[in-house]
Amino acid sequence: MSEPKYKRVMLKLSGESLAGKNGFGIDFTVAKRIAEEIKGLVDMGVEVGAVIGAGNIWRGREGSGMDRVTADNMGMLATCINALALQNSLEDLGIETRVQSAIEMREIAEPFIRRRAVRHLEKGRVVIFAAGSGNPYFTTDTAAALRAAEIDAECILLAKKVDGVYDMDPNIYPEAVKFEQLTYRDVIEKDLKVMDITAITLCKDNEIPIIVFGLDGEGNILKAIMGEANGTIIDCNE
């Protein structure tokens, strides 16, 4: 088997990815499939950190009339539910896993401590970073970029519903064109909405490449780490 291109990665999953075809809640069949692919990375010696969104549980203040801070706090707590679900699926496969939360909740998760997280990774444990950055007004994309920089991840594996970055929504416009390679500047200037601008800027400043790929195809996480994903690479190369 070929060697993986990266030794330490940050996997960014949307909350919707855990919902499966239901579109809401947690489909544990899907969680198990994702866990099996992560196990494949661990078995190859790749150190894996992960951040999961919360869109399958909470969509922020859309239609709620809530103030932004309260809505974002609820979203951060919802990411903890998803983190525990993924942890359970990984541990069912015998993978040692730690959940580290940016919001202290010692009964169910460790507090985020950078050095401890890095030590877990070095020991072959998967570390799931929950509760975003612990601050409202910042997305889980930004949390993924921040944690990736803090743990010295070599890339971000950005799992999406579509198989890369397009110039327009391919689900609406069949003539949409997929990009194979982009720079961080391209993403910002073209307003491609791959990740929010704060996340893209963090990746640019720390030279963390982003591999955008579709999660639906079986084995796609493994293909991404091997450089075989038919997706989009975002980096500093012009």
Score class of each variant (00 low, 15 high):
E154C: 03
A130H: 10
G214K: 00
L182Y: 00
K190P: 04
P174V: 04
I208C: 05
T140M: 02
D205F: 10
P111C: 04
P170M: 05
I113V: 15
V177W: 03
T140C: 01
L157W: 04
G217K: 15
V162F: 08
V212S: 01
T183S: 05
Y184V: 00
E218D: 13
D205H: 10
N135Y: 13
R147C: 03
R98P: 10
G132N: 05
T198K: 02
Q181G: 09
G124E: 11
H120I: 02
M195G: 06
D186V: 02
L182A: 03
E122H: 09
Y173P: 07
A117Y: 01
D152S: 15
I108G: 13
Y137A: 05
L215G: 08
V165W: 00
L202D: 05
M195W: 00
D141Q: 02
K123A: 12
S133D: 09
Q100E: 13
P136V: 04
G214F: 00
S133E: 08
E180R: 11
D191E: 15
A102E: 04
Y166P: 04
G132C: 02
I188W: 01
K190F: 02
R185N: 14
G219W: 08
D167M: 00
G164V: 05
E122L: 13
K193Q: 14
L121E: 03
N171I: 09
D169P: 12
A148V: 10
G217L: 11
G219Q: 08
D141S: 04
D169V: 10
E110M: 13
E207D: 15
Q181D: 12
M105N: 15
P170Q: 03
A149S: 15
P111H: 07
F213Y: 13
V165H: 00
Y137K: 11
D205N: 14
D167R: 00
S133N: 08
K123P: 10
K123Y: 13
I113Q: 05
K161F: 12
E175P: 01
D167I: 00
R147N: 07
E189A: 09
Y137P: 08
E150P: 06
A159Q: 02
R115I: 13
F112H: 12
Q100C: 11
G124N: 09
E175S: 12
I128K: 03
I103L: 12
Y137I: 12
A109N: 06
R125A: 15
R106S: 13
I108D: 11
K161D: 15
T142F: 10
R119K: 15
V162Q: 14
P209C: 04
L222R: 11
I113F: 01
T198I: 10
M195P: 06
D163Q: 04
C203G: 06
